[in-house]
Design a protein around this nucleic acid. Structure first.
Length: 885
RNA sequence: GGGCGAAUAGCUCAGCUGGUUCAGAGCGCCUGCCUUACACGCAGGAUGUCGGGGGUUCGAAUCCCUCUUCGCCCACCA
């Protein structure tokens, strides 16, 4: 016997760290360029460099890790490439907030010092989240960790920009964009999120210039009236006819604006008259273009009334006021002048900055745009050709609809943290171009040049991630070997931001989509179905979970607790209910291992060295179950049904192996027993199958199994293949009957409150014979019997049970039997069966069923009917014998 | 306004191509057990008109329609 000193409780905390270190030391997470294996690549959605691990990361990265570990074990050259995103606005905001606490702004520091300050911050804290990912077992290739602002990735960004520029896909657009007055930058359509608010609809009178009356408009944003340059009405609206062509006077400033006809007006809404503010509303901008209107800005970049050029349009009483203060004041002024007709409450959507939540201000400005149609088309075609699939499939429509309606992408941000836009302008000859290297002088006239002050949208670097991380634009060995990758696992929130754009860039720059499967996860929510977030205070810190329950427990809940793509609901107020199942399962594995290890001799023969003739029914049964589990779990994993695979293995380990096989085999463990090989094989297999889900506990145990070579790691071990000849339907059925018999006797024991210590006498009249006697010792022991006799039921008082095949069980119960209760119990059984049988018979005598249902189904039902009849007959006999029929 | 998803035991969820021992799991609950691997355990047990209503079918938790309730995404009615 080997020395045996494992404690009865698995201590994840002391085991996980060293195991992770073993994996790192062995270098098994490092993908090799020169191996003969087929690659399998997952690129990690790079978390923000400022992020700390939350449950969303926990879920997402656990899934990725389980997939990559599965593929690694299946013999693929697995690459899971980690990294972080510089997260332009988010990171800049964090450091600006720090500065604000010192009473400073970024303008006090100046661009260079400010960027330096961010770098200092990022260098100090930027690897936090990656370190945290290690604690949950993430098997990333840390030798390939990337950051979107690494020199190599910045070069890729610049290359991509210049190429698009050269292809004329980048242009300067003068239009109304989403402007965040807090972050002081433009945003893309995707970065300005819609939120419903309960606002107001203000009805405002605009007097006619000729004094002949007034028109009334409805608006949600009265403050913008200062920038109005027209009023429009639908050409077919009879209410408008008398006014079209006249001039109206703006309230407050008295500026005169024309009343025009425009088809874009919805006659049903408001008064039919619409005020037009071309510089502060995207629709109005379009109207302005059609009618060649002036487009004055009346707000500053930080959302205050006024600003350069607003001159006479913003009176001194309003200038400098915040836009929402100004709104209140203007409403008061209108009221005072009798120009406010009415105010209605009005629910409508406003856009907010996705980073700071400020209400976005539409604002006319000049920005760089990418022309997206030419990029979107190939991305749609690739999908239609089947080069890309989504799991779950329902996201396919979302993907295609977005690409079909794609709009140009505003990529310039008025920030300092990020990739500076490589557009240069000659101050002398005004030549403008994009360049891969910073030019010293204008290539056309030799004049001095200036660079565009803005930086690129963070997502402009993210969309290159699957290949910029592999060395593109250089033709590196990594790029050749690991592009395109295979599976992308991410949250649906960034389907447009990131996923669709990666597909577009991958196809555009490398002719292939960067991955073939997009697995979209669900969202982590609390029991009230609210998204877990710091601001709501309903979060669960994954590191707390790791500390209290172990990383495997966290992973178990993340994988087994949720089916493909559905939300993961966790209870922050009941961590025990949420994470104990995984911990308990790990502990169960630990104790099965403890038991097995305490029994095994030094050397255990391989399973294929065992002569099948030496095996008992129980042996053949567990091997058959083991084989089935390998097959079903493998298939489930292949289909990304990780929850399904996990539960199948759980059932095998706990339900079959621990509850039945280990108990059945105990007395047979002795020198020369083939049971050693069976037990070891099954446990070893289970550990392999479970490794992707619970890598730590499985690794810890697997290394202790006999026959391990030094340094051998489960994480790098092969995935199990079903052994030939293990499938055994007879054993499945035979041991199934044994289980049924034992359960029936245990049931009787529980019902009659017989102490577990009392040995009972039982008799079995078997209708299908065999099987029971093959495992009679098992039955005797596990059912707590003194003896089990096979043959006719003896006379005497006792409890009865009838098995599925009609076999008859009798348990002698001397004085303690209660005939009334026994009758009740058996009649309940009988009634249930009777009812089922009635239904079944009706079905079988139904002409249309017999003729229309497949013959197979009918035959199955016939067999079933026969079995039930026999069972029912036996029950009736019992009842009659007891005199209670 | 358009699109998508969900509704199954007290809670969190499975139930894949429709076939009565598939109405299931975990947690919780009830009963009995520290049976020398495990009380983070063992054995036994209760609990559900599978959201409502129609339909298709020999047969529906499973397919179709509709209603209700929740959630998400998209959208230029100010």
């Amino acid at each position: 016997m080997p020395e045996f000193s494992l404690p009865p409780q698995y201590d994840a905390g002391s085991v996980e760290g060293p195991l992770y270190q073993q994996w790192l030391d062995a270098g098994i997470f490092t993908a090799r360029v020169d191996s003969p294996r087929q690659p399998y690549v997952i690129v990690m959605p790079p978390p923000n460099v400022t992020a700390v691990l939350h449950m969303g990361h926990g879920l997402n990265n656990t899934l990725q890790d389980a997939i990559i570990r599965f593929e690694r074990m299946r013999g693929r050259e697995a690459l899971w490439l980690p990294g972080t995103d510089h997260a332009g606005i988010a990171t800049q905001n964090v450091v600006e907030t720090q500065l604000a606490r010192e009473g400073k702004t970024r303008f006090d520091l100046g661009r260079e010092a400010f960027v330096q300050r961010i770098w200092t911050f990022v260098n100090a804290t930027g690897s936090t989240i990656l370190e945290q990912l290690k604690t949950i077992g993430s098997s990333c290739d840390w030798t390939r960790t990337r950051f979107t602002l690494d020199p190599a990735l910045s070069r890729a960004v610049r290359e991509a920009f210049v190429r698009l520029w050269e292809e004329k896909l980048i242009y300067r657009g003068h239009r109304v964009i989403h402007w965040c007055p807090q972050s002081l930058t433009a945003l893309s359509d995707e970065e300005a999120e819609f939120h419903e608010i309960n606002g107001h609809l203000y009805y405002i009178h605009y007097p006619l210039a000729d004094g002949s009356g007034q028109v009334t408009v409805a608006t949600t944003r009265p403050e913008t009236l200062l920038g109005d340059t027209a009023i429009v009405v639908h050409p077919k609206d009879p209410r408008g006819a008398p006014y079209i062509g006249k001039m109206a006077k703006l309230p407050i400033t008295g500026i005169e604006i024309p009343i025009l006809a425009d088809e874009s007006v919805d006659k049903e809404f408001g008064t039919g008259f619409v005020k037009v503010t071309p510089a502060h509303d995207a629709n109005d901008f379009e109207v302005g273009l059609r009618h060649h209107l002036a487009m004055p800005l009346v707000m500053t970049e930080d959302g205050k009334m006024g600003g350069a050029g607003s001159g006479e349009r913003v009176p001194p009483t309003l200038a400098g006021l915040d836009r929402f203060e100004a709104r209140k004041k203007i409403v008061k002024m209108l009221e005072a002048q009798g120009l406010l007709a009415k105010v209605e409450s009005h629910q409508h959507a406003v856009r907010r900055c996705y980073r700071c939540d400020s209400i976005v201000e539409p604002r006319l400005s000049d920005q760089w745009f990418v022309k997206m149609k030419p990029l979107a088309e190939p991305a749609l075609e690739a999908f239609r050709r089947g080069e890309l699939k989504f799991v779950p499939e329902r996201w396919e429509t979302t993907y295609t609809l977005w690409l079909e309606g794609i709009r140009d992408w505003n990529i310039s941000r008025q920030l300092w943290w990020g990739h500076r836009i490589p557009v240069f302008t000659c101050t002398k000859c005004k030549h403008q171009w994009a360049d891969r290297v910073d030019p010293a002088a204008c290539p056309q006239c030799g004049g001095p040049v200036t660079q565009d002050p803005d930086v690129l949208d963070t997502w402009f670097s993210s969309w290159l991630w699957p290949f910029s991380t592999l060395g593109w634009p250089d033709a590196t060995p990594d790029l050749a070997r690991f592009y395109p990758g295979h599976t992308l696992v991410t949250a649906p929130e960034i389907l447009f931001f990131w996923v669709a754009r990666m597909v577009m860039s991958g196809i555009h720059f490398l002719k292939r989509p960067p991955f073939s499967t997009v697995y979209l996860t669900g969202t982590v929510r609390d029991t009230k179905h609210r998204k877990m977030s710091k601001s709501l205070g309903n979060g669960i810190d994954p590191l707390d979970v790791v500390r209290l329950y172990g990383a495997d427990a966290l992973r178990w809940t993340a994988i087994a607790g949720v089916s493909i793509g559905s939300d993961l609901i966790l209870d922050p107020d009941d961590l025990e209910a949420t994470f104990a199942p995984g911990r308990n399962f790990a502990n169960k594995l630990w104790n099965i291992g403890r038991f097995i290890l305490s029994q095994l001799p030094e050397r255990v023969p391989a399973i294929d060295a065992i002569d099948r003739k030496m095996l008992t029914l129980a042996d053949r049964w567990i091997l058959s179950r083991c084989r089935a589990t390998i097959e079903t779990a493998t298939r489930a994993n292949e289909q990304f049904r990780l929850d399904e695979a996990a539960k199948l293995c759980y059932e095998f380990v706990w339900g079959d192996l621990a509850d039945w096989y280990v108990e059945a085999v105990k007395p047979r463990l002795g020198p020369g027993s083939p049971a050693y090989a069976v037990l070891t094989y099954c446990f070893d297999t289970a550990l392999r199958l479970l490794h992707p889900v619970v890598p730590f506990i499985t690794e810890a145990l697997w290394q202790k199994l006999p026959g391990r070579k030094p340094g051998e790691l489960l994480a790098a071990a092969p995935w199990p293949a079903p052994i030939a000849g293990a499938a055994d339907a007879q054993a499945d059925a035979g041991f199934g009957r044994v289980q049924e018999l034992i359960t029936a006797i245990r049931g009787i024991r529980a019902e009659y409150r017989i102490s577990p210590k009392t040995r009972l006498t039982a008799a079995l009249t078997s209708r299908t014979a065999q099987a029971y006697d093959a495992e009679s010792e098992t039955v005797t022991r596990l059912a707590g019997l003194e003896t089990l006799t096979l043959g006719p039921v003896p006379k005497g008082v006792g409890a009865h049970a009838v098995l599925k095949d009609g076999s008859d069980v009798f348990v002698a119960l001397d004085g303690s039997i209660d005939v009334t209760q026994e009758c009740k119990r058996l009649s309940l059984d009988r009634d249930r069966l009777d009812k089922q049988l009635a239904g079944l018979s009706a079905k079988l005598s139904n002409e249309s069923f017999v003729s229309r249902a497949p013959a197979e189904v009918v035959a199955k039902e016939r067999d079933k009917e026969q079995a039930w009849r026999s069972q029912l007959g036996a029950l009736n006999d019992k009842l009659k014998a007891l005199g209670c029929a």
